[in-house]
């Protein structure tokens, strides 16, 4: 579903990704871990066609980036640090806008469905500027799954969420993954990642330094594995 070969990304003189190889099969849930500044966000931005690879090959859902970006975008949902919502529009209006941008027909039904999924039906007529960080994040997740994407990228989706919202997000992520979608999530919350993902990749020093599946983690768990990888 996602295929990345020898991906290099430079910002001016600075090389952030130095030859990333990454492959995700349909239905896999990959947690992408790594220290601050490792390039996780940059990597997800490349997968979502918001940034261009400097070198290397990137394929998402069978389409090449950057040349077939529109096809990739139609099959992709993204949740980032920022909610990507308009403060002066209501929850309903925000989703309507994105529904139009994704060419969703009969979107009223779908919007109601999504608002129920993220627990915001009661707030649909409220402006986003009146939402708390967590509520905006919930709606951001609703926005990302509105067009029922095959691949979903989450960049630290738990940031700023309270217990309630985090469990809601757990549920959403599980239901999203259960439907055979492919998910890549970055997270600093190892316990949560361990709970959800089927595979753990560690991005550090510009490459995927290690990759392991849930089954082969052993009894010490993800934390020890992560620390050992970073220590080199």
């Amino acid at each position: 579903m996602i295929e990345v070969k020898k991906l290099v990304k430079r910002f001016g003189m600075k090389t952030v990704l130095r030859g990333v190889d990454f492959r995700v099969e349909r239905g896999e849930f990959v947690a992408l871990l790594g220290p601050n500044g490792a390039g996780k966000t940059t990597f997800l931005r490349i997968l979502s066609s918001l940034a261009r690879p400097s070198l290397g090959e990137v394929k998402v859902a069978g389409y090449h980036l950057p040349h077939q970006a529109a096809q990739v975008r139609a099959r992709l949902g993204v949740v980032s640090h920022m909610p990507l919502l308009y403060g002066d529009l209501t929850a309903q209006e925000n989703l309507e806008f994105y529904a139009r941008m994704y060419g969703i027909t009969n979107y009223q039904l779908r919007i109601t469905e999504v608002l129920e999924l993220v627990g915001l039906e009661a707030r649909r007529r409220d402006l986003i500027r009146t939402f708390s960080r967590g509520m905006a994040q919930r709606l951001a997740i609703g926005r990302a799954v509105l067009h029922d994407p095959e691949v979903i990228l989450f960049d630290e989706p738990y940031t700023g969420l309270d217990q309630d919202a985090s469990s809601m997000l757990d549920e959403v992520l599980k239901s999203v993954a259960a439907q055979g979608r492919t998910v890549v999530m970055t997270s600093h919350d190892l316990a949560r990642a361990e709970d959800l993902a089927t595979r753990f990749d560690i991005l550090t020093r510009g490459v995927i330094a290690a990759s392991t599946s849930r089954g082969s983690l052993g009894r010490y768990g993800l934390l020890k594995y992560y620390k050992e990888t970073l220590a080199g």
């Binding site: 096809q71 975008r73 909610p83 990507l84 941008m101 926005r143």
Partner: peptide
């Protein structure tokens, strides 16, 4: 400011 530009650019439109 709320990252909406990314939201726009993620849409499958020209």
């Amino acid at each position: 400011d709320r990252g909406c530009l990314d939201g726009l650019l993620l849409a499958p439109v020209d």
